[in-house]
Design a protein around this nucleic acid. Structure first.
Length: 421
RNA sequence: GCGGAAUUGGUGAAGUGGUUAACACGCCGGAUUGUGGCUCCGGUAUGCAUGGGUUCGAUCCCCAUAUUUCGCCCCA
């Protein structure tokens, strides 16, 4: 038997229904927030991600699916949504649109070559939004609120919004320097990973779980202490806006994010539930004011977030949130002999084209089985065709809730059902 | 990339180096000569992930591979 590639999954059954439902919720919300749907290629020139996400990030260093196509082009399967959207923004000159800022959302599969575990796949599904062309923390607040409200709307209760600010380039550089100085003296006593991080991306040391209890970690400098006046003002303003929107959040100085392009606002939304494993971050994002330029576009501010659909599914499961995905059948049509079968075929089509959800028997099973199936499908009505009734252009319609049966003319069936369903 | 655990039918699973792989659920049929959901009866694995090896003989022992899962790393 051929099995699926490692780290992939088939979306089927209840999960498929749930994802469908969630996608509808997401689309409806994005419509209200006036975000426009965008789809970019699953694969891009490698440069898009290598430059966009950053050569220093783990995602690019060891997790991308890179290959050469038959034309010897360097291709990368997209590991995240933002870089491709920004490439499209530039290529399609969206910065020249008459309506600004440009607000986009995507809902696509992403690819990262990682060791899979619960809530983490090699092919996975992310929903995300990007706002390009507005530098006001006003829009930061909108983006965070959108993410937050999506979780609220879906019925997830125990979620927490963590925010932090990395500041502008100047603040970031200062902080980076301070951090390097702080750890430099004692780096030998820290874990090998941290020693590596000090050189490549000192910010990530703060995330370390091995060394997190050490004294040197506890009194490490924090990003917010190194923000310059402008950055600080902006961060304060963001918090005022979030307060205004009634969004519960905590300032968490340890949120630094793994992608190189972030500055100023960064945030993560996690689920607080002990049953959840290591993958408890449902979504995250931040501001990336330098990214458009980095990909050869005009200087343009941007902010966005992404959330992992598989993790949302897990979260809904763990939190025992019941999504309204049951859509019971309107009518089940049963039959036994061939004449009745012909009528069934016709009737099923007729009712379906009139907007009813209808099912019938395919395997010529016994009437008993057909009734069982009708029940399992939670059918509102059951029609059992009978040759004699058909001759009189009538069918016996049974209300499967009251168990009452009624003879209805075939021509009146649609009207009857319209009135009763 | 590193470490641990798992892998038996449609599902949940028990089990043993040696003739017919337990049980339950589900599914199909019958009791009920065209009306289910309860009950009773019957049926339901080309065989224990794949490939090698050890053995007279392996689902059960060994090795490898694949997939899943948990943790690390990282992230959604």
């Amino acid at each position: 038997m051929i099995s699926k590639p490692k780290g992939t999954y088939d979306l089927i059954g209840q999960d498929a229904k749930k994802i469908n439902y969630i996608n509808n919720v997401l689309a409806a919300m994005c419509q209200n927030y006036n975000y426009e749907f965008i789809r970019t290629p699953v694969f891009e020139a490698s440069e898009v991600f290598h430059r966009g996400v950053g050569e220093g990030s783990d995602i690019v260093r060891k997790e991308t699916y890179d290959f050469k196509d038959r034309g010897k082009r360097d291709i990368t399967l997209r590991p995240e949504g933002t870089a491709g959207v920004v490439r499209s923004y530039i290529e399609n000159k969206m910065y020249g649109r008459d309506i600004q800022p440009v607000k986009l959302y995507y809902n696509e599969m992403m690819y990262r070559y990682e060791r899979p575990q619960a809530g983490r796949y090699r092919e996975f599904h992310q929903f995300g939004v990007e706002v390009l062309g507005c530098d006001d923390p006003f829009v930061d607040a909108e983006v965070i609120s959108l993410a937050y409200n999506i979780f609220q709307t879906l019925g997830l209760k125990n979620i927490r919004v963590n925010i932090n600010s990395l500041g502008d380039q100047e603040s970031r550089d200062n902080y980076r320097q301070a951090l390097t100085n702080h750890f430099a003296q004692d780096i030998k006593n820290m874990c090998p990973d941290c020693q590596e991080r000090l050189k490549k991306n000192p910010l990530r040391i703060l995330d370390c779980k091995v060394d997190q209890d050490k004294e040197i970690m506890k009194n490490a400098p924090q990003t917010i202490d190194y923000l310059n006046e402008e950055s600080k003002k902006r961060f304060t303003k963001l918090q005022e806006y979030l307060d205004l929107l009634d969004i519960e959040y905590v300032v968490n100085p340890k949120i630094v994010r793994g992608l190189d392009y972030y500055n100023h606002t960064v945030f993560e939304i996690e689920i607080l539930n002990e049953e959840f494993g290591a993958q408890n971050v449902l979504g995250g994002g931040g501001r990336y004011n330098g990214l458009v330029e980095m990909l050869d576009g005009p200087q343009t501010p941007g902010i966005g977030f992404a959330m992992g659909m598989e993790r949302i599914l897990l979260a809904l499961d763990v939190e025992e949130v019941h999504l309204p995905i049951d859509n019971p059948l309107d009518v089940y049509i049963g039959y036994v002999n061939d004449e009745e079968k012909d009528t069934a075929l016709y009737l099923v089509q007729d009712l379906r084209l009139n907007g009813f959800r209808v099912e019938t028997e395919y395997l010529n099973r016994s009437l008993k089985s057909q009734f069982k199936t009708a029940d399992k499908l939670k059918s509102r009505y059951v029609i059992i065709l009978n040759s004699n009734d058909i001759k009189e252009f009538k069918v016996k319609l049974r209300d499967n809730q009251t168990k009452e049966e009624e003879m209805v003319k075939i021509n009146d069936l649609v009207d009857y059902l319209d009135m009763h369903i």
